[in-house]
Design a protein around this nucleic acid. Structure first.
Lengths: 154, 154
DNA sequence: TCCTTATTAAGATTAATTCTTATTTAAGAA
DNA sequence: TTCTTAAATAAGAATTAATCTTAATAAGGA
């Protein structure tokens, strides 16, 4: 149940993975897009746009924060990543496209994934049909992560 | 299962309800705080700070947006209301303190409540214990609300 | 290799939220 | 009831996340 996220991709692997998806969507595959995808795909840290920017500036010193935001939006539209609602006001992004849910630490804001396939395939209350057409479901568990509990003991 | 939210409180009722809570917390009960609480408590529309501001300016023309934000933060700390993660970047607030979950329309952003007591009392996956101490759980269902479905037909 | 058009970088702009400071007021004491 | 004082407010400035504008660049097909 404790699935690990795939390893970080090489640029060539990422290009290979994205090539057809981008071609079909009729949009260009730029080095910026490849690098930004690699940053989100290769980690389960749910990075913010800012965090990705800080990281990528090292390899691509002229990249602009606007490109990060635009590309994250593009990747979101393509269904390659998801925007996660966080505690603070920065959006966080997630390339784990397997069905999963989030544990959010109310102390430090860290987001970790958990899996619950039996919930994913169970039926929701009938009442919900009256609200509209359902597209997805997601559980947010809030609490204090083990690391913050440790710190508090001291 | 389709619980209705309580009616809007009179200022006197709100004062009565908040008096001890504020006294115990050692903070002052101002007219602004009473009015802001009434706005969130008496509705299930999950208003934004901006929406509350626009509404209250009519009765209290000199109230400032900063007071709205500060007071919402205070009410949140007291556990009287909750901050809801919305689709757009404005926070939304909710004084429905009964256990409930949200249906969020991806078209118009409207948030509606639903109830699922059997989920609330069911046990979560064991795996989660390793993440930390759990304080709460909440389901977000995304979809297209009946109103937006109607509009699309036309 | 060349062309066309989408994409990018840079910096300006917007919008939500928070901070600073002088003024006002709630609530307890006299 | 009036006084006192710390806490709360209003106003406007500041900050920060995110988006927009525009001129320069580069992807990808011809």
């Amino acid at each position: 149940m404790n699935k690990k996220h795939p390893e970080r991709l090489t640029p060539a692997e990422a290009r290979n993975m994205l090539k057809d998806i981008f071609a079909n969507a009729g949009i260009k595959l730029t080095p910026q897009r490849i690098e930004i995808f690699r940053e989100v795909y290769g980690t389960d840290s749910h990075p913010s746009a800012e965090a990705i920017y800080d990281k990528l500036k090292q390899k691509m010193p002229t990249i602009s924060i606007d490109t990060i935001y635009r590309t994250l939006g593009t990747l979101e539209k393509l269904g390659l990543i998801n925007r996660v609602s966080a505690l603070d006001r920065q959006s966080r992004f997630d390339a784990n496209t397997e069905k999963h849910h989030h544990f959010i630490c109310t102390e430090c804001g860290r987001i970790t994934d958990f899996y619950w396939p039996s919930f994913d395939s169970s039926s929701l209350p009938d009442e919900l049909k009256a609200h509209g057409r359902i597209l997805s479901r997601h559980i947010e568990v809030r609490g204090i992560c083990t690391e913050c509990l440790q710190k508090k003991k001291k």
